[in-house]
Design a protein around this nucleic acid. Structure first.
Lengths: 158, 158
DNA sequence: GACGTTGTTGCGAATGATTCCCATTACCCC
DNA sequence: GGGGTAATGGGAATCATTCGCAACAACGTC
């Protein structure tokens, strides 16, 4: 079996390499774990545990939701996956290689991926004022997106 | 009956005025609502619904937790109260007159109240880059506080 | 002050997201 | 290929919050 050559998001070699890392850490390369990883490496991020469960179950119907949660937790411990909270509602999971913050619209729920540089001003201010080091990745910053602001402004005018 | 003269946090006159506003909006000035408001106007913010329930129940033991939630929801609709999410765990409630953002430590759970000005840099950047208007009050920005950073750095050295 | 309307309450059950427990299964090292 | 043990399926437990509903209590009116 050769190494995967798919263009992985940004540095992690692929499913097989992750599974190798899992085994090095004393874990096992189970089928559910492999399928879950394939889904995580596929396009489209910000998937909830339940969405991932559905995707996995299309291939292996017996994989239980709690197995998904356990695997995500384990993969997170290994640094392969992270989760983010985009507002109310369930957490979303994605590969740890995709590092960005999130701006999430309170009106329509849309989520923007924000380059970490966007948070530099706040990071600097928090560091200076409080010695506090922000982590913009774990929780989204809420607010209102351009489309909703335009719509709401229009409604106010009408 | 005279207006309350207690030094209210920052502009809202007091329990009686809020209850007046409630009645103007077609609501009723019930005992549980009055007691809840007294607790909200008392010192110490960032209280969870459950903590508020305990405080209220010290005075009126039969007030049910769901009543607290309903009253908080109603008061929030009237613009008297807001809630914030300070990380994992339950939401916290406080008077809407206290406007500040939150920095919440992922290690120790401590929460700092941050003046809204701290977020100006991020607000500007998000507006320019995405037309996105942030609301720094509803969700805390997570990260690591000075104390925990010092402790963790020390542990790393040891 | 009694009355009726209708907003509110107490209570428990329902929900949604996640975690826990446990007996069974299936990796994978030797 | 057998055995030790990590992982799984299944369901029950948990935590925060919401809902449904019958009984109750504000408050304007008479």
């Amino acid at each position: 079996m050769s190494v995967e050559h798919r263009p992985s998001p940004s540095g992690l070699a692929g499913v097989d390499e992750v599974l190798r890392r899992v085994r090095e850490a004393g874990g096992r390369a189970t089928t559910s774990r492999r399928i879950l990883l394939e889904r995580l490496f596929s396009e489209g991020s910000h998937k909830t545990a339940e969405a991932l469960a559905h995707e996995v179950q299309r291939v292996a119907p017996d994989v239980h939701l709690s197995t998904i949660y356990r695997n995500l937790e384990e993969l997170e411990r290994l640094g392969v996956v992270t989760h983010a909270h985009l507002g109310h509602g369930p957490a979303t999971y994605h590969l740890a290689t995709e590092t960005h913050g999130h701006l999430s619209c309170e009106s329509c729920g849309a989520t923007l991926e924000a380059p970490l540089g966007l948070f530099d001003g706040l990071a600097e201010a928090a560091r200076t004022a409080f010695g506090f080091e922000i982590d913009p990745r774990h929780f989204a910053v809420l607010g209102h997106c351009a489309a909703c602001r335009a719509r709401e402004a229009g409604a106010a005018d009408a």
